[in-house]
Amino acid sequence: MSDRKPPPEPPLPRGPEVTRRDLLTGRVAGLMLDRLQGEEPEALPAPPLIRLTVNRVSRELRVPAHRTLAEALRVNLGLTGTKIGCDHGECGACTVLLDGLPVYSCLTLAHDADGRSVETIEGLASSDALHPLQQAFLTYDAFQCGFCTPGMIMALKALLDRRGTPDAEEVRQAVSGNLCRCGNYLHVIAAGLAAARSLGDGG
């Protein structure tokens, strides 16, 4: 194994505030320790309680005003099925249904879900059976790495809830706000159509 040593650097004029020695001698370590014992780092007043229904279960949360619904679901409620791919409304991985409509939870404030109903991928299957969309995604191999899958399925769920028998173009449009970098769009569209058919058949 090579001894990985970078070439020597000329000494750096040092900043007055924190020095390496400070770090070593514990001036900073002391600061760090204080913080280890400290509480949540919120300078703002304790945030008000919000109540939302997540997958038909009522939940209460106390999160700062700037916490997004995506983070609240993942971090505060442990529902990590909702993914964050971009955090900017540019990928669709965080798609959830808010009062039945697909939205990007990364651009939705948790506080704006107060009093509303949120559906996530975790709420889709019943205890004993997959939702037809989930089944169709398996049958048609509608994903590869699967990171876009929860968002894709939720976007399609909203479509199928609204429109029983969509055509291929409507299915395509419904997932037009969801990126799949693995590029499995055609299988996603096939799965969406198949799920619609099986729902139509009363299955």
Binding site: S2, R4, K5, P6, P7, L12, R14, G15, P16, E17, V18, T19, R20, L23, V28, L31, M32, R35, L36, G38, E40, P41, E42, A43
Partner: peptide
């Protein structure tokens, strides 16, 4: 100068070229 960052509530550590010697590779 990382002192203001370190002073922020919740911050536990700041690494910079001042306190971290670790090499990435030979270069």
């Amino acid at each position: 100068d990382a002192s203001r960052a370190l002073a922020l509530p919740g911050v536990r550590a700041v690494l910079t070229c001042l306190n971290t010697d670790a090499a990435w590779d030979e270069e």
